[in-house]
Design a protein around this nucleic acid. Structure first.
Lengths: 336, 336
DNA sequence: TTGAAAGCGCTAACAA
DNA sequence: TTGTTAGCGCTTTCAA
């Protein structure tokens, strides 16, 4: 079936060793031999058996990426874009991506462990870091190369890329305050997620500095989906004193909040302001377009992958921790 | 570093073979030996080297999935859900997923070829089939197991799952006709995609049967994104005689169309009807909620993966071609 | 410049 | 019930 180096050796009358060397451009092969080997290899349609190569070389040229799926309707535009970013850099450097799906929980670490000890991957890209993230502790202790999108609580002695969510939310909240809002509500992602806590800090700081308080009822939790954003907003709108502005911890929830507002016959941007975080493509096309904080997902995927590959290859890293400055995107959902 | 079967052999004083057999539950190992081997393996934290196992067994237990990325801002909720579906079944049967990103074009087949001859995958899941799809011809000829989400033109002698887009669009269009619409426009995905042609057939047939014509200007092409849907709708709305209803070939474009309508100050569902196809979660949360055709992406991912695994394992397939009956989801975007 | 041989970690046919 | 041996396809050391 598949052509092996042995077949080429037989055909050319050379040894397996010589063929291998010729194919890899070693310079201790005569030009004629090399030319012949290369020609025959091409003729026979030879492609190296990567499994064998990797077993021998003791590396896999593969990056692991484990999708934290939260259920069947796992429809988050974030991930396809992020994956596209990883893919672009991985391809560039000749790496493959091994994807698994595994919800956070008991069996999660086991999946990571198996991929490593089973020699399936050289390292991991982590996403959705939690404040206390067992994955990071585990990988750090095992000495497996990894990079994370997002930070954790405690010591930050590992490579990551993150956007400064606190700063982003600070800017955003300030923007709302400047527009005169005082009754500002916040729909937060689950606080176990580090970026949730981070963004909340930003909201909080801006409010504190302005001397504006946020009543308990104005802080609600959503599950990052549009549906949960809508439900959260419904609760907020049903309050005796509803907010005049709603900030959501991500765009998907903000869009959900917008629909909750609209189903009440209110006008987003006039009767009530809405803002999000992420700047997913949808946010530009929503009605009204959503004021949000930009996050370059694709580029972050690329950066992380390049960092990881450098770590795997023991190449020096210019900076092993990158904190991106967020950019506020003002559209119409908080008024003209 | 990593514990091998050899280490266990040394420790237990048994041969490598015996260890291997004990670990795999062969019944020609004495209970005491087995017990001891298992205990030691556990103590030492043994995990089999999958690379070696696979090289030996001549299969990879890995499914290939190549994302047809169309650019950096590749943010399609379809793919994360589909991937979650593949992942769920793959995990269930002990398979891994190898993901690459590769835009359609020249180098595409080469990527598929390399994964196969490089012994990296046992088979592929294809998505976004084109009318003339070189991938299918290639895989069919090479005898590589594969399954496709979607069909192609010409002979359908390969395993696929698809939803009957023609029927779905027929139902949807009829729904609009029944509501009295006669000026119906259609935003189609690029016609090179098979599902685009399929859906268009459905629209066409419903219109023909009703004796309603669709002027050339009412048929515009979008790129499946929200942005392109918005642009397409803008063009439609600028026509001397704009349509009273706009059908989009997918939900993302329909949502884009809604925002184009709203930016003109028109009310979707009253002034103009909009409908889509896919029933992505967002469609339920849009304002107004979008009338569309449901497509069970997650389940389709699961079905395809299970089919593929059966093919790989030479197990019989109940049905190797599955055409799902679409379900019309009536919401408010076409009126109350 | 070339080839023989060992070995990556594992499985399995065969022999004992 | 156990061990010896060969081999999956490849790279690389060593010797010629």
């Amino acid at each position: 079936m598949a052509v092996t180096i042995k077949d080429i050796a037989k055909k050319t009358g050379k040894s397996i060793t010589t063929v291998s060397r010729a194919l890899h451009g070693y310079n201790d092969v005569s030009p004629e031999t090399r030319e012949m080997v290369e020609r025959v290899a091409k003729e026979m349609g030879y492609t190296p058996n990567l499994l064998a190569q990797r077993l021998q070389k003791q590396r896999t040229d593969t990056i692991g990426f484990i999708l934290p799926t939260f259920g069947p309707r796992f429809s988050d535009p974030f991930f396809s874009e992020f994956l596209a970013g990883i893919g672009s850099s991985a391809t560039k450097y000749g790496y493959d991506i091994l994807v698994s799906t595994q919800p956070p929980g008991e069996k999660e670490l086991e999946v990571y462990r198996k991929k490593v000890t089973g020699r399936q991957v050289d390292g991991f890209v982590l996403v959705r870091t939690r404040c206390q993230d067992p994955r990071i502790n585990f990988l750090r202790e095992s000495g497996v190369p990894f990079v994370a999108f997002g930070r954790t609580e405690g010591e930050l002695d590992y490579p990551f890329v993150d956007e400064d969510g606190a700063d982003g939310m600070f800017q955003l909240t300030k923007h709302l305050l400047e527009r005169g809002h005082r009754r500002i509500a916040y729909i937060t992602p689950p606080m176990a997620l580090m970026f949730a806590r981070d963004r909340w800090q930003g909201v909080k700081r801006a409010l504190d500095e302005a001397g504006v308080s946020l009543p308990d009822a104005y802080l609600v939790t959503g599950e990052l989906t549009q549906r949960s954003g809508r439900e959260a907003a419904r609760r907020l709108l049903s309050l005796p004193t509803p907010p005049t502005a709603i900030i959501a911890g991500n765009d998907l929830m903000a869009l959900g909040a917008m629909s909750a507002i609209q189903e009440r016959g209110l006008v987003v941007g006039e009767d009530i302001a809405v803002a999000g975080f992420d700047d997913i493509p949808m946010s530009e096309a929503s009605h009204p377009p959503l004021t949000t904080v930009h996050q370059p997902i694709y580029e972050i995927g690329q950066m992380l992958t390049e960092m990881l590959i450098k770590i795997i290859r023991n190449q020096p890293l210019e900076s092993q921790q990158i904190l991106l400055r967020p950019q506020l995107i003002i559209r119409q959902s908080c008024g003209e």
